[in-house]
Amino acid sequence: MSLKSYIARRALDSIFLLIVTVVFNFVLFRIMPGNPALAVLGRTGQVRPEFREALQIRYGTNLPIWDQFVIYLQRLLEGDLGFSFYYYPTPVSDLIFSHRLLNTVLLMGISILLSFILAIIFGTIAASKFKSKTDLVSIFITLTSYSTPVFWVGMLIIFYFFGQFHLIPLSGSPRLEDPKYADFFAWALDYCYHLIGPVTTLTISFVGAWFLIARDQMLGVFMEDYITTARAKGLKERRVLFVHARKNAMLPMISVLALAMTYLVSGATLTETVFSWDGIGLLTFDAVTYSDYPLLQGLFLLVAAVAIFSSFLADIIYAYLDPRIRY
């Protein structure tokens, strides 16, 4: 199969999945007892009449379910995700595509990049010393980090580095609009200062999950003859590890990065909650807490769309780098 037709087939797959997601997203929030409007009315009891009216117009809740779906699709195509219940009358899209998305992308981006580099370095070193004490100790440490709840790591970091040593701020994410910042640089500096805690927490958790994958890949590559050749040529061990072996071991790590791309947008609910980092993860938590269904629906759609896209992208890169994949 040529690369072009492979891309075309995967694109079709992705579009199919996207349609399924949209339908699923609609159905999931309607199989609730009653409908979205009733759900919020039931929970909050007394509601202003204009709010009730707005809900009915927005969702056509008194219309048959098929008409509701058509309305939902129309609004979606116009880029309208509806209004948030809790932050009424703010539109859902305004809540998501704001400083929150930026905060999450920055937090996750830095953590993912840092963890990816660390996981590959540690994985390579551990694999090169297979079954040695270094290997066993690093496996033990990463299994421990994999087994530790990420939010608890965050709590410990706050307890020690804020509470005991006063090295990091307690929590929060500085906003550029805040009048206390004289200029952009003052804000950027404080922003980075606030990033230390959550980034450390997430990095510990990501490295724990990725280290074993990286180590396993490197072990596979070390079995290959060309590595033996490189060593036999008398190349320095470090050169063999990081130049010859790393390139081939990187391929499967791409799927790890593709998975991480979804996190880039979805955020990390637990870490963001512990550090009060005003991002998508915290927004998700709020939406669940206040049963803000339109907001949840919008968040779910965004994350699912990014997930489908990143899996598509990963497959294409994979197929491009390794033509054997295009079965």
């Binding site: 999931l28 929030f29 609730m32 593709a258 998975l259 979804t262 996190y263 979805s266 609910t269 637990l270 993860g281 998700t284 938590f285 939406a287 669940v288 049963s291 949840l296 968040l299 779910f300 994350v303 699912a304 997930a307 489908i308 990143s310 899996s311």
Partner: peptide, 15 residues
Amino acid sequence: IQLPTLPLMLVVVSL
């Protein structure tokens, strides 16, 4: 596999 697990669980729990 691609969907982040915790947010998905939260959505289902809220429902």
